[in-house]
């Protein structure tokens, strides 16, 4: 059964609440524009949109400090943006321009940014998980009290890399926050047809990793759960597994005819959409007016417009430079 839309009080001041709403709007408007640009062949190859799941990245990443690290998947535009990778650099990367955060070599699925401590952008399912364990182990060995947040989809939990990483992290009590965005479909395969144990927290629990679920459509629930989890990990209590129950409103990628789910199901989940439900709660509490919402939305759209102009104007990486960074310079 699909739960009713998120509701209840927002335990934040107006300023912080609007900041998170603005980030969700920035992701949404940026990705809507990306879909349009894909149609115009400005963005090419593979494009996996996060539309519908914005509360996860926004709620979770706002619970981290700038020193913490993020490892993400190929559906990572939102995480990169919230983490502070400039929208201009993200958009330019989508276009494949040299002003992109990966010099245009990666495209949509391979965003990286050292300054934002954003360790990709991993297009191989489960590929980022062992890396996250390693970042966390190095932090501990080098005496830093940081958290590595590792974001992945529930589809990755069928990969061996998930199980190896969970075991290592639990065995060595590593400061990793495993953040599973469970959007119910591993590409076109429903959770019940891809996992023997559909209670994902029970799976994590089998490694002795404390686990908790949160409503991934509710930015408040995500943020509060993530804050508590990050605190625990930072205090040296070992890894934590947080399942964010969410839903993508668009296809898996741009080529997907979506035959694997009912349109009615999608519509029901849209009623739980993270942006309009959160906005309604803020309005009900007097923390947002319609005018303020429109102003935030206009600012988000203006950023997107500027990012597109930046990407359009940027240059391609010179072909002779493509041989650089394969190995260390000699």
């Amino acid at each position: 059964m699909i739960a009713p839309p998120p509701s209840g009080p927002v335990p934040w001041d107006k300023h912080f609440a609007q900041e998170l709403l603005f980030d969700m709007l920035r992701i949404r408007r940026m990705e809507e524009k990306c879909a349009e640009l894909y149609g115009a062949q400005k963005i090419r190859g593979f494009l996996h949109l996060y539309i519908g799941e914005e509360a996860c990245a926004v709620g979770a990443l706002h619970a981290l400090t700038p020193e913490d690290a993020i490892v993400a998947t190929y559906r990572e535009h939102g995480h990169a943006l919230v983490r502070g990778v400039p929208m201009n650099a993200i958009m330019a990367e989508m276009f494949g321009k040299s002003a992109g955060c990966s010099r245009g070599r990666g495209g949509s699925m391979h965003l990286f940014d050292a300054a934002a401590r954003f360790y990709g952008g991993n297009a191989i399912v489960g590929g980022g998980l062992p890396l996250a364990a390693g970042l966390a182990l190095a932090d501990r060995m080098q005496g830093r009290q940081r958290v590595t947040a590792c974001v992945f989809g529930e589809g990755a939990m069928a990969e061996g890399a998930f199980h190896e990483s969970m075991n290592l992290a639990a065995l060595w009590r590593l400061p990793v926050l495993f953040c599973c965005e469970n959007n119910l479909y591993a590409m076109g395969t429903a959770l019940g047809r891809s996992e023997s144990q559909t209670d994902l927290c029970a799976k994590a629990g089998s490694y002795g990793v404390p686990a908790q679920k949160a409503d991934g459509m509710d930015v408040v629930a995500v943020h509060e759960a993530m804050k508590a989890a990050a605190h625990q990990v930072r205090e040296g209590l070992g890894p934590f597994f947080l399942e964010l129950q969410t839903y993508r409103f668009r296809a898996h990628s741009m080529f997907d005819p979506e035959l694997y789910r009912d349109k009615a199901e999608v519509e029901q989940w849209k009623r739980r959409g993270p942006i309009h439900t959160f906005s309604a709660r803020l309005k009900a509490e007097g923390k947002l007016t319609e005018g303020e919402f429109l102003a935030l939305d206009a600012r988000a759209n203006a950023q997107v417009q500027a990012a597109v102009e930046f990407a359009e104007a940027a240059a391609w990486e010179p072909v002779e430079d493509l041989l650089r960074d394969v190995v260390a310079p000699t």
Partner: peptide
Amino acid sequence: GWDTPYPHAQEWAY
């Protein structure tokens, strides 16, 4: 192809 990973935007150069 070149001895590099497959580039994204400049794939026709590779």
